[in-house]
């Protein structure tokens, strides 16, 4: 998706200028393309302020930062906050909850979109396919607040439909939201429900890119529908699947914090407290800025390490990689 592409074109002017020194080329660029710099400027400034200054601000993780003193005046404390986090009783539970929730989501959520795309791609009744597409995409647009409210309403022990059904079939009432054991399942499967259709689009478009000749050839060789999926579709999807896998693994520590926060109850906190909700609570609600920044930095660093590792492995094994 982000593979390197050599510029095919380039005007004669550019070629000529390539031989010149960098400073000369720069001056040429400024004088001839100042309007382009002008157009780019607002976004670059914006990104600089809102994305790069916070990176600079991460130094607070190594300080005893106070808003009154600012970055310059605050006292440096090295890795104190990191060590405090690693030694705190929240460290292992939040780390485990984050990683397990994330892996569970990745595994449970990875195949349904692919399966849906394969089914939709070959469905003969076009109308039916269109309707299924339209309906399965819809949950993607539901806000996380609405989703969490729906879950809480439907899973409520006293009045929820699910419990009414369970009781109807002779089961016992289950307090879904109050159970630490059930929280990961609720979180993950509601995510699958919401993301399956939307996730399938990227695979559908990859399937559309497969040459019809391959299908013809497979047909001639006597392949049935199922064999076509196995021998034409799946190999055709592989690059997309690997790309998605790499991208997802770079997010391994980024569990959807909003939904977790909305589904948290005091009773399921044991499994629902993840690193980012912990950062939110200790940082924003309790104003322990330096400590929370350190916890957040730890999380980002793990993400980057994961991304680089998976990308390297993938480049060696399958030649698919982001860079």
């Amino acid at each position: 998706m982000f593979g390197k592409k050599k510029d095919a074109g380039g005007s004669a002017v550019l070629y000529a200028s390539k031989k010149k020194k960098f400073s000369e080329r720069l001056r040429f660029s400024f004088s001839h393309h100042y309007e382009l710099y002008l157009l780019a400027l607002p976004t670059l400034i914006y990104v600089f302020i809102f994305c790069y200054i916070p990176i600079y601000g991460l130094q607070m993780a190594f300080q005893n930062f106070s808003i009154a003193k600012g970055f310059g005046e605050s006292e440096w404390v090295g890795f104190k906050h990191f060590i405090k986090f690693f030694n705190s009783y929240q460290f292992w539970p939040t780390l485990w909850n984050t990683v397990s929730l994330s892996f569970y989501s990745l595994i449970a959520g990875f195949f349904p979109p692919i399966i849906l795309a394969l089914l939709l791609h070959h469905v003969k009744a076009r109308k039916f396919g269109k309707v299924v597409q339209m309906v399965t995409y819809a949950p993607h647009f539901i806000s996380v607040v609405v989703l969490a409210s729906m879950l809480r309403l439907m899973l409520s022990p006293s009045s929820g439909v699910i419990n009414t059904m369970i009781e109807f079939f002779g089961g016992e009432e289950v307090d879904f939201m109050g159970s630490a054991n059930l929280f990961p399942h609720i979180y993950v499967w509601s995510g699958v429900w919401q993301g399956m259709g939307w996730g399938s689009i990227i695979y559908l478009s990859a399937l559309c890119g497969i040459s019809p000749e391959l299908y013809e050839a497979a047909k001639m060789d006597g392949a049935g529908e199922f064999q076509r999926i196995l021998h034409v579709d799946i190999p055709g999807l592989m690059p997309t699947i690997v790309t998605m896998l790499i991208l997802n693994s770079g997010q391994i520590m980024n569990v959807g914090m909003q939904k977790v926060l909305l589904l948290q109850t005091p009773l399921n906190l044991e499994t629902s407290e993840i690193i980012s909700t912990y950062v939110y609570k200790s940082g924003i609600l309790s104003a322990r800025y330096s400590y929370s920044a350190a916890v957040g930095l730890f999380q980002s660093v793990v993400n980057v390490i994961m991304l680089v590792t998976v990308n390297t492995i993938s480049r060696k094994v399958s030649e698919n990689s982001l860079w």
Binding site: M60, I67, A293, G296
Partner: peptide, 19 residues
């Protein structure tokens, strides 16, 4: 590259909040 770097690394919640 300046833009794409921000897809993979950022300051996170707290530094942004301070900003």
């Amino acid at each position: 590259k300046f833009l794409m770097l921000t897809m993979f690394f950022g300051g996170g919640l707290i530094p942004t909040f301070i900003l």
